[in-house]
Design a protein around this nucleic acid. Structure first.
Lengths: 232, 232
DNA sequence: CCAAAAGTGTTATCGCTACACCCATGA
DNA sequence: TCATGGGTGTAGCGATAACACTTTTGG
């Protein structure tokens, strides 16, 4: 009863179409990738767009984002964070649609690339990505900035590397995120000075003839590092 | 014609109630304040809440936030930024309501305190704020963190001071934002080292018997300062 | 033997932290 | 004259940026 009673309070208010759009970056030793698809329906048919669709009335926003990503690409177990809510009346043609954006950066080899292809989605090289529909370009800009700031401030990104990895691999990762080159001496010094990488006795000989020492990631030390808050 | 045609694409999708909630901080030499009001209707009647209401189908989200703030408090010319979209199905009782939050920090003396009171809203001391309804406490936490990070990284906050101000005033401002004390020598050094404060020949004798030198804010120098990006 | 990538050290500068005393004045 | 808040300096440390050569080894 009280349920029905309460519901009546807002019955005269206007409802709005709500969508989620997912900005998914992928990385795997090589170049940074971005997950896109070509519009199958609507006024923008054939143009490139992010992965997105409408949110149901009875699902949490976060759930909606997961569902849409899964339905459109088959991707599962992707931990997305909310980015921004795009809400101008005329942001898309024809209808008033609110879009809440979610973003993530995943390790490609942990996910099913086949199913993405079967669903008609594509991993494109971030650096050479095509123009996108509506305000989706803006969404991508905002998302990459968030990723960068996360990588900078919280040293995120080690989840993106194999269990054992080399310093040049880490550097390559950061260079892809920033689309910029760094000095390897300074980079090595900085990364090692944080104190959460453990040098192993093995070498990885994939990347070069000489071979590079492998390191592993000390989660405990990393937590200590993160908790030092950097105050004014 | 094409308008009608396009509109039909999404006609079967579910629409959702969308609200905005405004987290408005106020400052004016004294203590940091937060703008609240007591619920006049609904299941939470009489409890403290942020300023919020529903978004119309034909208004931009940003416009909606401005309108709601104006209607509920009479406040005008408040430049709010978007904070986060709260979207769990059961975040409020009875109805499914999406809430997009907006936040701002304003200088109290630039705004009409009377009209706020007449509208039934209140400025409460941030440090002693009451419990709020629903997820509004969470919203406030998130907002103050954003304000802090803005003040830290972009030296925002000089808009909040008079044209001419003293160093102790600036320090007081930061101490209110962080709810924490700082060493005055280090604070002074840091703030002055940025190079965008100009020392004047006048003293302000309000705050103390000795009087403190007044400074003004060099917008040009500040822009240079902001543009230096702090890369990895 | 050589191309290609890994690895290494120093210097100068800068910003941060911690810390204790004198100054000017109005009441 | 004294209580109040304004104002100052330094030493040590850690982080940053710029910079060039040696090592290893598979082909």
């Amino acid at each position: 009863m009280s349920q029905t009673y309460i519901k009546s309070y807002f019955s005269h208010e206007e409802k709005i179409l709500v969508a989620v759009d997912c900005i998914i970056f992928g990385f795997d030793e090589g170049e940074l990738k971005l997950l896109l698809m070509k519009k199958q329906i609507g006024s923008q048919i054939g143009k490139w767009s992010l992965i997105g669709s409408f949110v149901k009335e009875n699902e949490d926003l976060d759930e909606g984002a997961k569902r849409v990503l899964k339905e459109s690409t088959g991707l599962d177990d992707v931990f997305m964070d909310q980015l921004y809510c795009y809400g101008d009346v005329d942001r898309v043609f024809g209808d008033r649609v609110l879009s809440i954006t979610y973003y993530a950066l995943i390790r490609l080899c942990n996910h099913n690339l086949e199913s993405v292809k079967e669903h008609g989605a594509e991993w494109v090289t971030f650096h050479d990505r095509p123009e996108l529909i509506f305000d989706h370009n803006d969404m991508v800009e905002r998302a990459i900035e968030k990723i960068r700031s996360k990588a900078r401030n919280h040293a995120h990104g080690f989840e993106l590397l194999p269990e054992k990895f080399t310093i040049p691999q880490v550097q390559h990762f950061f260079e892809e995120i920033y689309q910029e080159k760094f000095d390897k001496r300074n980079f090595r010094k900085k990364i090692l000075s944080q104190g959460f990488l453990i040098k192993l006795d093995e070498k990885d000989k994939e990347g070069s003839k000489k071979g590079a020492f492998l390191y592993s990631f000390d989660k405990l030390k990393f937590k200590e590092f993160k908790n030092r808050k950097m105050i004014f």
